[in-house]
Structures are given as C-alpha cells and as structure tokens.
C-alpha cells in the first residue's frame, strides 16, 4: 500500500491555520485521505516515504502529550526528519520574541512547522515570517484544526455520516479552541451543533456561531447523537468562572444519568486530557459509548493526512 503515489487531493493553501477558510471539499478530502492512513497505522510496517528528506519542526510553546506525540509519529511514519522543540528548551525562555524565533528557525530551512502557542493568533503571526508550511496545533482560545478533523473522522467512522447529526459540545466553550474549530467544521458538514455551559463559560455572541446555546444539560443533550465534553482548566474551577468542581459536576458533569437524556446510541467524546469527576464521570469515560481512545488513534491518521496534503504543495514536491 503506497498512498503517497496517488496524489489525487491537494489543499489549496500553504498553511493549515484553522478550519475557518477550508472548503467543505477540502475538509472531506482530508478526511478521506486520513481514512487511508487509519488502515496503514494498523499494519506492522507503517513507514512511508512521501516526506523523505523533508524536515518537520514541532514547536510547542505549551505543554502537550497527545498532540505533540501524534504529530511526531505522523511525521516519522511519512519519512520526515522530525525535531521537537518545547518551550522549556527554547530561546523564548531567554526572552526571544516569537518573530525572532520564527526567523531563526526559518534560516534552518524546515519544510513544515507545527506550532502550538498559548496566545490566539500567534501561529498566524509566525506563519507570516517563514517560508515553509505552518500547521496550527492549537493557538490560545482560537483554533485547533487537527483536533476538529480527528473528531470528525471519529464521528464519521462510527455514525457513517456527519450531516444532520446532533452534536452537543459541553463545557468551557469560552476558552476552548477545540469548540471553535469543531463548531466551524461540523457546521460546514451539515451537523446540528449545540453548546451547553454555564453563562460564565459561553462567549458573548455565541448564538451567531450557528449553534443553539443552552445552560441546561437536559435540554442540550436531548436527542443528541454525539456528546463532546470539554476540559475545564483547574484555575477556572474554584470560584472564578464556576463556584466549585462539585457544583460543576452536579450541573454539567457527564454521568450516566445525564447521558441518558441523549439518544440511546449516543457516543461520547473528549479531546483530553480528562478531569475525571469534574466534567466527566469515569463510568462514562470508560463506558461502552465512549470514543475517547479511538479519537487518539484517529489523531495520528488525521495529522498524517494534513502533513501529506500540505507537502504536496511544497516547492519541488
């Protein structure tokens, strides 16, 4: 099986900065491509050559386990040379600006840079200063496009479609790049998106995102096909945005009782890492309706698809 020699699909852009700006066909093209990598990743020999000779830099200004590992594996399986740089070892610690870091790395002629940054818009800023392709691995509360793609792939493989599904996203919508990317993608593919959160965790104007917003789990989960839980950061739990973890779990934590409001065959997702007992109960996280582990598997395939598609646009490709 050699996928790299069937370059039927090309992304019409140099970078992947967000789901915003991707056409429906581009999203579907990436999902179809990823589908093929899922099969590949289940084989013993996963090595491809389409990125041979290419250099991929993983530039993470925020700690990450699964996204960073996932991009690293994706790059290596496609044959690229992968370098990981995390904030702890970078010159940013010594006061270097983001742009100086970008210019410095650019001088080393990488082909692809994967960036995660705590500030919304930072990845776009960096992309303007380099000659290679840039992939957003999460910028602040803005976008996390590969997460939305892997979520869509997971949903499509389990439900057979995305169109007309009711997808309910619950939790800290205000700070969530996962929610923003998912809302855009799911809307583009024709799903009905709902968000559920206390008002303190809903961004003003959320209704204009093309979602139904509610503060009540029973209402939000009614007839839902997919329940997507979001992580609540620790610093937001104790009185700043919600009073306490107990109260949050009581009203917004997904347990079996609340899950019963959704369709009987509803499936549960979480981008990880989970706070068990805060936004999700262990019985649900590990239960028969959970897709959480499958999401991680899809993550590698989706990132391979993104790297592959972008590399087809690179000079000398």
């Amino acid at each position: 099986m050699n996928i790299a020699h069937k370059p039927t699909f090309v992304l019409n852009q140099r970078h992947l900065l967000g789901i915003e700006g991707l056409s429906r066909d581009e999203i579907l093209g990436l999902l179809d491509l990823a589908e093929q990598f899922v099969e590949l990743n289940r084989q013993i020999d996963k090595k491809q050559t389409s990125l041979r000779g290419r250099t991929l830099i993983n530039l993470f200004f925020e700690v990450s386990t699964r996204t960073q590992a996932s991009f690293e594996l994706a790059g290596k399986r496609l044959g690229a040379d992968v370098m990981n740089m995390s904030v702890a070892s970078s010159s940013m610690r010594k006061g270097e600006t983001l742009i100086d870091t970008a210019v410095t790395l650019n001088a080393m002629h990488p082909d692809l840079i994967v960036v995660r940054h705590h500030a919304s818009g930072a990845v776009e800023l960096l992309a303007r200063k380099v000659d290679c392709s840039v992939i957003n691995a999460g910028d602040g509360s803005h976008e996390h496009p590969t997460q939305a793609l892997l979520d869509a792939l997971t949903i499509r493989r389990n439900k057979g479609r995305i169109e007309r599904l009711i997808v309910t996203i619950c939790g800290d919508i205000l700070h969530s790049r996962v929610a923003r990317s998912n809302i855009i993608l799911l809307n583009a593919l024709g799903a009905r998106v709902r968000v559920v959160a206390p008002s303190t965790l809903l961004p003003p104007g959320i209704e204009r995102f093309g979602v139904e917003a509610t503060r009540d789990m029973r209402e939000g989960l009614r007839d839902a096909d997919i329940v997507m839980m979001l992580r609540l950061q620790r610093e937001r739990m104790n009185g700043s945005f919600v009073p306490s973890t107990q109260e949050y779990f009581h009203y917004f934590g997904l347990d079996q009782k609340k899950l019963a409001y959704a369709k009987p065959d509803a499936l549960v997702m979480h981008p990880g890492p989970m706070n068990r007992g805060v936004e999700i109960d262990t019985a649900v996280a590990d239960g028969a309706q959970s897709l959480i582990r499958e999401q991680v598997e899809m993550g590698v395939a989706v990132r391979m698809a993104v790297l592959e598609a972008l590399s087809r646009n690179l000079p000398n490709a």
Binding site: N238, V242, P243, Q246, E247, H250
Partner: peptide
C-alpha cells in the same frame, strides 16, 4: 473573591 455555589 470567588463566587459561592449558587446552584447548590
């Protein structure tokens, strides 16, 4: 400083 458990 921190809101109380209004719901509970």
């Amino acid at each position: 400083e921190e809101m109380a458990e209004i719901g509970l």
